[in-house]
Design a protein around this nucleic acid. Structure first.
Length: 962
RNA sequence: GCCCGAGUGGCGGAACUGGUAUACGCGCACGACUUAAAAUCGUGUCCUGUAAGGGAUGUGGGUUCGAUUCCCACCUCGGGCACCA
């Protein structure tokens, strides 16, 4: 037998597979189809690093297994090649990005091919190929036709020195990434895609797909559905002027009685409308200006303190109470979310609370928490009673202690309440009177001083054991200071005796831990922190006819009461689809001034689509790739290209010089794979029908909100045009973890810790690299690279290779069948690391014997083949086969052969393992108990004691409790 | 600040649905083969203790006969998002 020579073997089989088209997907087949997809790479100038292939290998294993299970598998690849890095390289070196892209993708292709991944290379696509981007442009025209593409003024990041718009990624801490100049905001006309029109469906249809739960959650958070109401508030002014209403959006209409002021975004149109009525207009203007010029640096430096200015001279009317409330502008209210205006409810919203504290605005509680005391919950069969009560925080200000009451007695069943001084408010009595009376009667202290009432009331429900009734109480908390310690005599009654209570002075810092009823915990916290916003649901107070009702259940009624309407809003914003850059798909429209005049006032007036027959609008060659001084794409400099006849009126017109973002080409690429060479359609309907949806899409976590959402949006749009057969593009989505550099830091050129797979392939072979990358850790998590550890993967393959000298009889039935089962199931769940360790265990087992039967060896090779395709194929042919192992059938296991007859189980005493015994599988409990109690070690531990309890877990362990 | 993920030997990691923690691999130590080295093969390898035993899954509590796994609080690391009414 020859030595294992990975260099020879791997090159040889790669050539043969390519020649025989082993991995080509066939359009239409009797076999069931399977479409597996990875995110196609961006061919950067740095070439491949070892992190790139991890997902490709993972999905390769899935795809290869699916092929062996009889599926017609489509596993394609291409290049997502438009975008910034190549363009910046072009600007720096003056090289044509087309040339650079070609060079880079050639390198990538060579490197990926050297790994033996079963891509169908005959379907390779490239987003920068005019034959491809013709269809990207075509889809854009469909958006335009349906009114989902529109122009809008949008603030962009602008570097005043480079005179260039910057991507968020190029802004580092508020400064331009390349020249360090502070970045400014600048308004620019941009093409937008109305993804928000699909927000609802993008959210709801997540129910239909099989994505990892974190991925669904991330998408849902990004879309940010929120149910609430739009409510109008009237604006009034002593100076007669325009009568206006302002619409606010709120998710908490139930708190409207507590709306003590109104806040508009500084950009809100009504601010300008009331210019004449606003008496501090200069101050307002200053605030607006400061806010507009504020760059990201200043915002971060500002440390989140909220700022704002009152619009003096105008007021709003709270639609629920009819009271006049002040109006403010503040930048914590965003112009593009909801209606750009809010009703502020400081008692029940954290931001409003912070703002109200800072500017001394009224804070009015309208919801109190409904505290169910779960230590002493109401009894279902006891009488319910209602009471108003005062709780008294009696402080000794000199000693910094508080008087706390410990209830004693058997009736509480160990759940004795520990609380402040409590007293029921009698008919006709004031809170303050009750408090003073109770202090005197219960504690004897007669010289106390009222400090304040805590403006936070609560409701409590509990079983009052001392009176044998259920109570629902409305709690008012008052604070008193002890002036001097003299006492009068305590008044005892039926319930209040010296034996039923004990009072202790407790230091401030211990109060929170000692007091054990929720109301006192809450009011103490409120007292200590000088208030906080209670944002939960509860019982309405100070809310007119709604008092006493449940806040959650009353929302709809309150909306009706104030004449508002229910409304759902989303965080998701429309997609800015223009870039003033060279290296992207030209947006296929022209601007015609004559047509603009004719259709003035209409949306997109003057913007005429390029006729579909004239697509693609090819990207012309330019001399200079730098954007123009005015911030336009370098395309604007090519008069010959820009000036064109209007396709509609034949008048003088100019081409749009904006290009598309690089998310465009990747929003539909998976569709092109089904029919990559079609000249008439982006893909034939028959092909789409057969191949879509993608059965399994694996990609990076960083793409879960942008790319994944954008492509779902495009797909749904195409579905609405009846151009694709499914509502969702991807049935299943998983994600992989990054490969980090040695020591767990990110691999990057600047750190000099990038590992090039070429080196590894040369030294150890592609199969070794594949095994190592799949073995190093769980596929979904980041793992640090370790060149030192690769050798283990190589040794494993060599052992598998060396078995060729041992082929004869030994069958390894049990081990083999266990291995088949485990590997089959692990691959399905992407547990590649444990699948490989199972294969290693098998090899170790066989290594102990002199021989292995050909049948067992072949089954093992089949299991190995998705992971290490070259070596498996080579041995397979050495064993006499004439057809590829990769087209053979996946082995099945026999459940009967897996079962052991005799097994070892653990014997625990009080939960600790003290011995092991051998049993026959499925022995009954009696036999096992006998065996256990006969065991020497067990007897030693029992030392004559009897077992209180014996727990037997079938075929696993027996636990004796003493 | 909010959301998500993670924390287990010297290192990467394993552990089904709550049931013998540390599989598999790296490294290390010893042994065999060799003139020698490398490679290979074999044995050992959580900590502590002579042993019996005791202690370990980020920390502290809880539930349970039994917790890496479930609950509560906290700490650390990684990723994402920035005031979303």
């Amino acid at each position: 037998m020859k030595e294992y020579d990975h260099k020879k073997i791997e090159k040889k089989w790669q050539a043969i597979w390519e020649k025989k088209r082993t991995y080509q997907a066939k359009d239409f087949s009797k076999k069931p189809k399977y479409f597996s997809l990875i995110e196609f790479p961006y061919p950067s100038g740095d070439g491949l690093h070892v992190g790139h292939p991890r997902p490709y290998i993972g999905m390769d294993i899935i795809s290869r297994k699916k092929r062996m299970e009889g599926f017609n598998v489509l596993y394609p690849i291409g290049w997502d090649a438009f975008g910034l890095p190549t363009e910046n390289y072009a600007i720096k070196t003056g090289q044509d990005p087309r040339v650079v892209t070609k060079k880079n993708s050639n390198t990538f292709r060579r490197q990926i091919k050297s790994l033996g991944i079963s891509f169908d290379w005959s379907r390779e696509i490239n987003t920068t190929d005019p034959k491809y981007y013709k269809w990207t442009q075509w889809i854009f025209l469909q958006f335009l036709k349906k009114g989902l593409a529109y122009k809008a003024k949008i603030a962009i990041n602008w570097c005043p020195k480079d005179k260039i718009g910057l991507a968020n990624e190029e802004v580092i801490g508020g400064y331009c990434e390349r020249c360090g100049t502070p970045v400014e905001k600048r308004e620019q006309e941009q093409w937008m895609l109305a993804i928000t029109k699909y927000a609802d469906r993008l959210d709801k249809d997540l129910d239909k797909v099989d994505y990892l739960p974190q991925i669904k959650l991330a998408q849902r958070n990004w879309i940010g559905r929120s149910e609430g109401a739009e409510i109008e508030f009237k604006i009034v002014s002593p100076i007669p002027g325009i009568g206006e209403n302002v619409k606010v959006f709120t998710t908490r209409p139930d708190t409207i009685f507590g709306a003590t002021y109104l806040v508009l975004a500084p950009e809100h149109e009504l601010v300008q409308k009331f210019k004449a009525q606003i008496s501090n207009w200069n101050e307002v203007l200053q605030y607006i200006a400061a806010n507009r010029n504020r760059t990201d640096i200043e915002r971060t430096a500002e440390n989140k303190t909220k700022t704002g200015v009152e619009l003096k001279g105008i007021k709003a009317i709270n639609s629920a109470t009819g009271e006049e409330i002040p109006i403010w502008i503040a930048d914590y209210v965003l112009p593009h979310y909801g209606t750009g205006a809010i009703m502020a409810v400081p008692a029940h919203d954290e931001r409003d609370f912070e703002f109200a504290k800072k500017y001394n605005l009224e804070i009015k509680q309208v919801i109190m928490p409904d505290n169910l005391d779960d230590r002493n919950p109401p009894h279902p069969d006891k009488k319910n009673t209602n009471r108003n009560v005062v709780h008294i925080i009696l402080r000794d200000p000199k000693k910094k202690t508080v008087l706390v009451m410990f209830l004693k007695g058997e009736k509480w069943k160990g759940n004795n309440p520990i609380n402040f001084i409590i007293g029921g408010i009698e008919e006709g009595e004031k809170e303050l009177e009750t408090a003073i009376r109770e202090i005197k009667e219960e504690t004897g202290y007669s010289n106390v001083k009222f400090v304040k009432k805590i403006p936070f009331e609560t409701q409590a429900r509990f079983f009052a054991a001392h009176k044998d009734v259920n109570r629902t109480v409305h709690v008012h908390t008052l604070v008193f200071d002890l002036v001097s310690p003299e006492k009068v005599e305590i008044i005892e009654d039926e319930y209040f005796t010296k034996d039923s209570h004990e009072f202790k002075w407790i230091p401030y810092e211990q109060v929170e831990d000692i007091v054990n009823i929720p109301d006192d915990k809450a009011s103490w916290k409120y007292f200590l922190n000088d208030g906080y916003a209670f944002t939960g649901e509860g019982i309405l107070i100070n809310s007119g006819k709604f008092d006493g009702m449940d806040s959650e259940k009353t929302k709809k009624e309150i909306i009706k009461f104030v004449g508002g309407k229910e409304k759902t809003t989303f965080k998701l914003r429309d997609w800015v689809f223009s870039r003033q850059r060279y290296w992207g798909e030209p947006i296929p429209v022209v601007f015609c001034p004559a047509c603009a005049k004719a259709s003035a006032g209409k949306e997109n007036a003057g913007w005429i689509p390029v006729p579909e027959k004239d697509l693609p609008v090819e990207l012309p060659k330019v001399k200079n790739y730098q954007p123009t001084d005015s911030g336009k794409s370098p395309l604007a400099n090519i008069a010959k290209w820009v000036n064109i006849k209007c396709p509609k009126c034949q008048g003088k017109a100019k081409r749009e010089t904006d290009t598309m973002p690089n998310w465009a080409g990747s929003s539909w690429y998976y569709l092109r794979y089904t029919d990559p060479k079609n000249k008439k359609y982006f893909a034939d309907k028959k092909n789409l029908k057969y191949w879509t949806p993608v059965d399994w899409y694996n990609g990076g976590n960083e793409h879960t909100t942008l790319h994944l959402l954008y492509s779902r949006f495009w797909h749904k749009f195409l579905f609405d045009l009846k151009l694709v057969p499914t509502t969702e593009p991807y049935k299943k989505r998983t994600s992989h973890g990054m490969i980090l550099g040695e020591g767990g830091v990110k691999m990057s050129k600047s750190l000099g810790n990038v590992i090039n797979p070429d080196e590894i392939v040369k030294t150890y072979g592609a199969d070794t690299l594949r095994i190592y990358e799949m073995f190093m850790g769980p596929f979904s998590q980041s793992v640090a690279w370790s060149t030192e550890s690769i050798i283990g993967a190589r040794r494993f393959l060599e052992r598998a290779w060396n078995l060729q000298t041992k082929v004869s009889k030994t069958a390894f039935d049990t081990t083999l069948n266990k291995t088949i089962k485990k590997v089959t199931e692990d691959i399905k769940e992407m547990k590649f690391n444990t699948a490989i360790s199972t294969l290693m265990i098998f090899i170790n087992e066989v290594g102990k014997s002199d021989s292995i039967s050909q049948d067992a060896y072949e089954k093992f090779l089949k299991l190995l083949s998705p992971f290490a395709p070259h070596i498996a194929e080579e041995i397979w042919f050495n064993l006499g086969h004439k057809d590829s192992i990769h087209l053979s059938s996946w082995p099945k296991w026999d459940e009967n052969l897996i079962k052991d007859e005799e097994i070892k189980i653990a014997v625990q005493i009080n939960g600790k393992v003290r011995a092991e015994i051998m049993i026959q599988v499925d022995d009954n409990e009696e036999i096992i108990k006998q065996k256990t109690l006969a065991n020497e070690a067990v007897l030693r531990y029992l030392a004559g004691r009897d077992a209180k309890k014996i727990i037997y877990v079938k075929n696993r362990l027996i636990n004796i409790v003493l």
